[in-house]
Computed example of a mutant assay.
Amino acid sequence: MKFAFEDRIFSIVTHIALALLAFVTFYPFWNSAVIAFNEGTDTSLGGITFWPREFTLENFEIVLKDIRILKGFGISISRTVVGTFLTIAATAIFAYGMSRKELIGRGYYMVFCIITLYFGGGLIPTYILIRNLGMFDSFWVFVIPSIISVWSMIIFRTFFREIPPGLEDSARIDGCGYWGTFLRVVLPLSGPVIATLSLFTAIAHWNDWFVASIYINNNDLLPVQTLLKQTLDSNIASELNADTAAASFLAKRQSFTTKSLTMATMMVTAIPIILVYPFLQRFFVKGVLVGSLKE
């Protein structure tokens, strides 16, 4: 009885600790959303915590009237879709080759891949390489340098090795080569891993702002996250072009602040990727664990 009581106390303490951790993790996002929906001048007075005091959609209207944000969304969506597809496709093909026992020297190849997880060339050599490849101010600078993910390759490779050999042997008997076996047998069985790694890759592409800040000078190619970084570093109102519709809107209504516009921009950039989670959540545990428990 004493043991059961101690277990109950432990369970209660654990749930309280997890609830506090969840609150501490979620509250900054919630508070940012509250500020985004609150009138800017009222927010500057302080005291905005859990609910908007002066509800308004003006902050979002200003942000969405900025043509730079709309173009940035187009770039972010394009790089996320194209980058995720190419990365998953190239990495899965690479991993399938690495999973084949008949691949000569695969142990050495694996060592070379592992080394890249711990050591990199550095920013300056990478900068010189990108420049020599002619990818400055190019959409492909978002995609090509990260087209292979070694971490994802290891997950794919481990998962592929767990597929029963009899399935591939049956495909070979039916006349499939390596490509046929990969496309018709291996990939259809890899749905959970593909979905999970696709989400991780998409999030990395969507959230990245650093690449554009280094290699992109053309404002029409800046993704929305880089624009958000610029917003956080400077006053968004002073950067709006006087010829934009947003500028005329600002001239009529001035109940905004830099902080309120920044929070609205954060919400606009975060919500799209958040909406993807519920559709792929069921693949998380199954996809990652199945591809990583055995080696």
Rank of each mutant, 00 (worst) to 15 (best):
F142W: 11
T201V: 10
L123M: 14
T158S: 11
R172C: 11
D208E: 02
F160Y: 08
M135Y: 15
Y178W: 15
I194E: 09
G122A: 10
A171L: 14
C176Q: 00
F119V: 15
H205A: 05
L117V: 08
V185T: 12
I155S: 01
R161I: 13
I203F: 14
P192V: 11
W179M: 14
W209S: 09
D208F: 04
F159W: 06
F182N: 11
V193F: 12
N207G: 13
P192I: 02
G121F: 06
M153S: 04
E168Y: 14
R161W: 05
S190N: 02
S149T: 11
I194W: 03
I173R: 06
P164H: 03
W206T: 10
G121E: 06
G191H: 04
F159G: 07
T196P: 03
Y118K: 05
T158W: 00
V150L: 07
P164K: 06
P188N: 03
R172K: 12
P164R: 04
G122C: 05
L133M: 12
R161H: 08
L187Y: 05
I144E: 00
C113S: 15
T116C: 06
Y109R: 01
G177M: 14
F160A: 02
F210G: 09
G175H: 12
W140C: 04
W206K: 00
L189I: 11
W151T: 05
P125L: 11
T181P: 04
Y108D: 11
A204M: 10
F210W: 13
L117G: 00
I154C: 04
L197E: 00
D137M: 00
L133G: 08
W140S: 07
I203Y: 05
G105K: 01
L189G: 09
V111A: 01
F200M: 02
L197Y: 03
R184Q: 13
S190R: 00
F139C: 10
